[in-house]
Design a protein around this nucleic acid. Structure first.
Lengths: 198, 198, 198, 198
DNA sequence: TATGAATGAGTATTCATTCAT
DNA sequence: CATGAATGAATACTCATTCAT
């Protein structure tokens, strides 16, 4: 089990990264926000970038576990998609800081291979999850088979991300989760066969 | 007419920003890439950030003019949407560097109000363009009227952006423009009424 | 109590400013002279100008306290003037570097309001001290009453400063304090009534 | 005869140096003030410092010629001293910018030997002029013979300079020349024998 | 002569990282 | 484990000077 301070620093970093962006944030600011000394950070993290890396890997893992659960609980493909999107929006609505960091930092080109890889892996996992759902939908006859799967994955992911992004830029002032159903509806019309699941 | 050096520097900056990101890029690197002295940059730009600002405002204008033309040339709403998306993909395919900069830097949280505003304005214009097309489509009976317009705009924009983003991350190794038709098809199924335009 | 390093840097700065002048001195030179890293300076001073400001305010205070003491210890006005001038010359003779900095930097036109104000305030205090002595001298009948006080203050201050200045330019090679008595004599003839105090 | 532009630049430099000080002034500012191109300055001056050097040597010469004239026109030593001081104050009152530059830049420590020498030479000449007057006064019996001549020179020079300096700092808002008589009176009491010249 | 665009050396300042306590 | 003072490499920006026109 990770120490108390570790989580303290992670949370502080998310807060400050969300407000100012990674490069605009100093390690000293994170330390102050976390209420620890500058040097203490280096007891838990290799360097500044490692903090961001851990945010992506540690927190992403937490969140993805919820996604998998949500998808597993649903039966049919459409409901799985709905569950996925809803829990995605829920997770980000619950932690807007994290949402901001994900949205704004994941697109940044970076030198560190470790970080790039981490981010790419997360995206890939997410797309794979969508891919599995769509394939299941195709098997069930709820989703069109004449679709380039790679495009469909991005189509769904892009739509969800843009909805989140708009919400983030709007300052998180409205209910993000309420966008889930209309969004799924749009997606299903795009990729679905029209066959009803009930 | 802007001076020769101005464009030289803009192009150099796009190249280097695309490769390393804004914060990882030094002014000296831009100067070297442009083949000018460090100080020369400050004859044409107020500071480093101003270069990015100019890229967004100057180059975005160029590109947006093409978008408006493309949309204007088409007759029916679906064709307008197809034109818009195709010219979007074309523009970014032709200048991958610019695409990378747009995709990765536009999401960054930043202090400068000027830059944030510039970026927000571009996004808004784009969404408005989509909005107009959809409204026209609703009038023509090609697009559903039971849609929350704000969501539709983001839905389309998000899908396009994610397609570009994936292409960017893949190193631009395949034909981006060929994604236009399937993408429009997906979007139209999502937002269309099913009525055929021919 | 101020840290060790603070004084180390102040002394180093005085030395280097005295040798090369404020604008010709780099922060790196001060750091090297003080035996600290460049960055360390910014732990104790806001910026380069702040060092000069602190020299004026911190060291001036030290010295002025001595002046007030010296003046207070003397009884009659002429002796007070003699004490003031002697301790002034003594102080500057003891720290020629400081003398040089005071003489050469205090006349410079500068943007910083804080610095200008600091310098003006010191000059004013000094002139006020002289003013008080002269007024006491007038009461005692040792000094002429037909004098424009503002002129007298400057007359005395100017004479003392020029004597110091010449000594500074001469490289501090002779005994500055020995000029005190003849200087006071000259001043007293100029402003005195001729009445003897003994 | 020096070209038009030469004087134009000299005057412009005096104006800007007076306002901002030598080190705070850029060559471009001088050029703008003079209404010439940056490069033009280097047709008339070797470098930035040369401008200041020329101000001291060219303008000082002009002024000193007036001083010598004024001193020559007077008969007796006291009147010579009065003439000198009055023309000094007059000259500076007429060109406050020049006064500021003289007062503030002449004390600065500088690397350039040429400039330091120029400034020292001017001061020396001035002190010599005073010296000659005092010696004449001693011959005539108007001035005390028990004075260390080096001190007397500085005594007078210092008093005059401080009076000018105060006027400069006050923004030149009062009549400087009117200080001449009281100032001479003070000096004469200090150094004179009391014998009346009429 | 005159120009002003271009140069690039020079510098104040920041900040990730270390390490003695 | 925890601290935070100290470090010094890194970098945006300025400006005196040059030179092709």
């Amino acid at each position: 089990m990770k120490s108390d301070k570790y989580h303290l620093i992670i949370e502080a970093a998310i807060t400050v990264f969300a407000k100012q962006g990674y490069y605009q944030t100093t390690v000293a600011q994170i330390a102050r926000e976390a209420g620890v000394a500058d040097g203490t950070i280096y007891l838990y993290f290799k360097n500044k970038e490692d903090i961001l890396l851990q945010i992506f890997s540690f927190r992403a893992k937490q969140i993805f576990d919820r996604f998998y659960e949500a998808v597993a609980e649903a039966e049919l493909s459409e409901e799985k998609l709905r569950s996925l999107i809803r829990s995605h929006l829920e997770a980000f609505q619950q932690d807007r800081g994290l949402a901001v960091v994900f949205q704004s930092e994941s697109r940044q080109v970076r030198k560190s291979d470790a970080l790039t890889e981490q981010i790419n892996q997360i995206s890939k996992q997410y797309r794979n999850l969508i891919g599995e759902i769509v394939e299941k939908g195709q098997d069930e006859g709820f989703m069109r088979k004449d679709l380039y799967l790679g495009l469909v994955k991005r189509f769904v992911l892009g739509a969800v991300e843009e909805v989140i992004n708009t919400w983030v830029l709007a300052g998180g002032r409205y209910d993000l989760v309420s966008m889930a159903d209309p969004l799924v509806d749009l997606c299903m019309r795009g990729i679905g066969t029209g066959k009803k699941s009930t």
